[in-house]
């Protein structure tokens, strides 16, 4: 956190603005409300069932009961779901970025008939709500015999990740100077090596932003996994949590421990790579 020089003073003024101080206090109160659900979940995850039912709901746990975590881990089969989620994410995210970047390079740097039409067709995909297509996706994946397989979810995940990534990277590649690829082409370099040696190294910032956004999206995805991964040995974390909730909803401490364990990885990634989230989101949505 960087300390702010001269807080509460509007630009060009030396006086403390009381309106800003009031605004700040309001924001602090709202922030406390915003964070309350997290605290409530963490507190409950450290309480025994009798404490949950006996004592005040927002009292911090006086003697934390860490056994909820171990119990929820075993009963919720977290070792299986974490493993499945991790494999799917680790395969899908880099692979998706690679094929999106390749496509974005072609669409921004190689001229051919139909390039514009293909670009529009892909960008159109950013707006398709896949939640509407769960049944035909099931039919399709079932047709390939891939129900209950990791590949069966990875392929649709790839398909629905491509549009936004191509859109953002296309915008970025187009801003790079034309001479960059032209000079290399004259020197006899192929498009493969221009893409690999020049464009990829230059586009690390947008790639990092997209990587983080896609990690979180893939880690959190629920609806497609729900129709494709039906056998509980293939479940991902969100499916495991949903099932935990329906089976053990009266084991309050364990249920909340399960919630904490489910959201923790994405939260940690968010805290470490915070600034990339903002740049990744605004790259697509807001052009200066």
């Amino acid at each position: 956190m960087t300390a702010l020089a001269n807080p509460f003073r509007p630009a060009g003024s030396d006086r403390i603005d009381p309106v800003l101080v009031a605004l700040w206090l309001v924001l602090i109160v709202v922030a406390a409300l915003w964070i309350a659900p997290f605290l409530f979940i963490i507190f409950t995850s450290l309480k025994t069932n009798s404490t949950v039912m006996g004592a005040s709901a927002f009292a911090p746990p006086t003697n934390p009961d860490w056994t909820n975590y171990a119990a929820a881990w075993t009963r919720g089969k977290f070792s299986t779901t974490v493993f499945n989620s991790a494999v799917i994410t680790v395969v899908k995210v880099p692979l998706g970025l690679a094929i999106s970047a390749m496509a974005a390079y072609v669409l921004s740097r190689i001229e051919f008939r139909g390039a514009r039409a293909i670009f529009l067709l892909i960008v159109f995909g950013t707006m398709i709500p896949f939640q509407v297509l769960l049944a035909p996706l099931f039919t399709l994946v079932n047709g390939f015999g891939l129900i209950n397989t990791k590949l069966g979810v990875i392929l649709p995940y790839l398909a629905f990740g491509i549009p936004y990534q191509v859109f953002v990277l296309h915008g970025f590649f187009k801003e790079l100077p034309r001479e960059l690829s032209e000079a290399a082409l004259i020197d006899g370099a192929s498009h493969f090596s221009i893409f690999w040696r020049i464009f990829l190294p230059l586009s690390l910032p947008p790639l990092a932003a997209l990587l983080i956004l896609d990690f979180v999206a893939t880690w959190n995805e629920f609806a497609m996994a729900l129709v494709i991964l039906q056998d509980n040995s293939t479940w991902t974390l969100p499916l495991g949590l949903m099932s935990f909730q329906s089976q053990f909803s009266r084991d309050y401490g364990q249920l909340n421990a399960a919630i904490v364990m489910t959201v923790l990885p994405a939260t940690i990634v968010y805290m470490i790579f915070q600034r990339y989230f903002v740049s990744g989101l605004t790259a697509g949505a807001v052009k200066e």
């Binding site: 390749m102 293909i118 398709i128 035909p136 039919t139 392929l155 491509i162 549009p163 493969f192």
Partner: peptide, 20 residues
């Protein structure tokens, strides 16, 4: 370079939309 993205997107995003 374009083919992988186009094939995956066509088969797993556009096709289900037409099939529905």
């Amino acid at each position: 370079l374009l083919a992988p993205a186009l094939i995956v997107y066509g088969v797993f995003a556009l096709y289900p939309m037409l099939n529905v």
